[in-house]
């Protein structure tokens, strides 16, 4: 197995300050939001790597940096050994770009409403002046739609069908890596099942690699081979799927698994999580999870934990064992 994606010490800081004049008048400091802090991970070829986290965990930001839509503030992302932002080899960058695709959450905004489905699907190929004859029709059938749909416009389709069109577009350039940012969050359960099944089938048929970004633990458990748990932009735990779900090490992972509603949770009274996610502009000192952590000790308030390997899991916690 070789790594298709290598992420090393990836950090992204957003400047969310008010405009300069407001800052001067109101005597405000510059506000910096660290969306992603020092994240390192590898994605093996032909596997599904899932990133889970709640809002503000930085999971989508990582996704955008992996596909090259957003430059990192520090650290690097390499896909097939090429850093999209630093490489000087234009041919290699172009080749890698066509190997990366993305599927988005918003079913209405992800397809240009003024374009016919045929043109939408063929765009990745047309943009590189490749041959597009019959391409859209073939891909539509591959994702379970009819080749006649190519002449329609996006508004003529239901949510699930739109996501199939997005998948068809993502497949057009014959990518190796597809970053899926909450691909089924906007879908109803029965349609979600159709889309997840389709994604699994395509992965097996085409040998795809997925970076699967989601807040839904059941979906992640269904899809992933390896899971990374993010909290406030930090990777707090990373493990093979079964290890993570059966034997979580980090207190945040445990809390998340406990809090998620269970389908068989009749009369269950879960241990309730403490507090809420802190303001990412002024994150807590030391381990960012310490104010909500039931195990926290004084050390946690001052010293940010390094990731340690325990069994097959990597955990950033002083106390995990």
């Amino acid at each position: 197995m070789n790594s298709l994606v290598v992420v090393k010490n990836l950090t992204r800081i957003f400047d969310v300050s008010k405009p300069w004049l407001n800052r001067v008048i109101e005597k405000l400091p510059r506000a910096l939001l660290t969306a992603v802090s020092n994240v390192s991970l590898n994605i093996e070829e032909k596997t599904v790597y899932a990133l889970v986290g709640e809002s503000g965990s930085g999971k989508s930001t990582i996704g955008k940096m992996v596909v090259g839509l957003l430059p990192p503030s520090a650290g690097m992302v390499e896909v097939e050994g090429i850093d999209l932002f630093k490489s000087t080899d234009d041919d290699a960058v172009d080749r890698v770009r066509s190997d990366i695709q993305m599927i988005f959450q918003d079913l209405f905004a992800s397809l240009n409403p003024r374009w016919r489905v045929r043109d939408i699907i063929a765009e990745p190929v047309a943009a590189r002046s490749g041959k597009t004859d019959g391409l859209a029709e073939r891909l539509l059938e591959q994702v379970g739609l009819s080749s006649k749909d190519a002449d329609k416009y996006p508004h003529e389709f239901s949510g699930g069908q739109r996501q199939r069109i997005c998948i068809a577009r993502a497949l057009a350039s014959e990518p190796r890596l597809i970053v899926c940012d909450e691909p089924t969050s906007a879908l109803d359960v029965s349609v979600q099942a159709q889309v997840l099944n389709l994604m699994s089938d395509l992965k097996d048929q085409l040998g795809l690699t997925y970076l699967f970004i989601s807040h839904d633990l059941t979906v992640v458990r269904h899809m992933a081979d390896r899971v990374g748990v993010l909290y406030l932009g930090r990777l707090v735990e990373e493990a093979p799927r079964d290890d993570l779900f059966d034997d979580p090490k980090h207190p945040y992972t445990k809390m998340l698994l406990e809090a998620a509603p269970k389908l068989d949770g009749f009369d269950r009274t879960p241990d309730l999580p403490e507090g809420e996610i802190p303001d990412p502009i002024n994150p807590p000192s030391g381990c960012v999870f310490h104010p909500r952590c039931p195990l926290a000790i004084d050390r946690c308030k001052v010293e940010a934990p390094e990731a340690r390997q325990i069994g097959r899991s990597w955990t950033a916690c002083h106390l995990a064992e």
């Binding site: 099942a193 159709q194 997840l196 059941t218 458990r221």
Partner: peptide, 15 residues
């Protein structure tokens, strides 16, 4: 069609 923890990677039932 709801992904179940216990069912693992089995294909989801599809309506």
């Amino acid at each position: 069609s709801t992904p179940l923890a216990s069912a693992g990677r089995a294909r989801l039932y599809q309506i």
